[in-house]
Amino acid sequence: MNAARQNRFNTFAAHGALILYTLIALFPVFIIVINSFKDRRSIFREPLALPNAESFSMIGYETVLKQGDFFLYFQNSMIVTVGSLFFILLFGAMAAFALAEYRFKGNTLMGLYLALGIMIPIRIGTVAILEMMVQTGLVNTLWALILVYTAQGSPLAVFILSEFMRQVSDDLKNAGRIDGLSEYRIFFRLVLPLVRPAMATVAVFNMIPIWNDLWFPLILAPAEEVKTLTLGSQVFIGQFVTDWNAVLSALSLAILPVLALYVIFSRQLIRGITSGAVK
């Protein structure tokens, strides 16, 4: 057999395998979203068919928007995610700068201490975290979640950002010092803008797990007015188990924001992973 034909066969097999797996990956999402636009009868009669003029129905979405306070949940998730990312990036970058820039006693030890948190899951400490949040009155507030996610995200942020900060040229910082800039100005004016790509990577890594977390909202903030979208849809779907239209619509509504975020940030995310930020 000649090499060209062998090659074409290989390419064909590669595409076949990838298309097959892509279908497996996307099929459930596709099924949920198309059926959320159908009336109840068509959901059961022809689950695989696209909605058409006859079977099209928004009844599920109407129920969801009437019953659940999805805008509030969405807003809560937004506040928690953006707030946590802000503190992870700010505190993480400051600590990373201290570790990368200055030589002081205990520098390595401090780095190791912070690195502990990369491997050990914060959930192990849940019992004591809840007790502390109850004592400080933070339970059922969004602050409880923001604090927990900040603590959880900081170690990896410090680790990644300090790698990048070591690459910022010393000449630049020293020129700033000669011009009389304070250390704080050097950090905020000179260094932070230069590590912006790394900050974006850290943000994207942290964003999805925070948005999707169920454990801490369930334990620290289960009250109606502070429910996140993930917990809200979990509770809502649990209540409407028999209303298939509502369940499918609620699932689709929960999928859409993450999918939108992914479409916006997927290049950043994939570049972050493949550039070896998490090795």
């Binding site: 503190f87 700010l90 505190f91 993480g92 400051m94 600590a95 700068f97 201290a98 570790l99 200055y102 002081f104 401090m110 201490y113 912070l114 502990l116 948190g117 050990i120 914060i122 192990i124 400490g125 849940t126 019992v127 004591a128 975290i129 007790e131 502390m132 604090l147 927990v148 900040t150 603590a151 959880q152 900081s154 170690p155 410090v158 304070s182 250390e183 704080y184 950090f187």
Partner: peptide, 25 residues
Amino acid sequence: WHIVVFLAPAVLVYTAVMIYPLFNT
């Protein structure tokens, strides 16, 4: 002092919300 200022927020939150509860548990 600036080293302390840079390190303090991350170390404080991490210690108070992660390490301390871990050992407390």
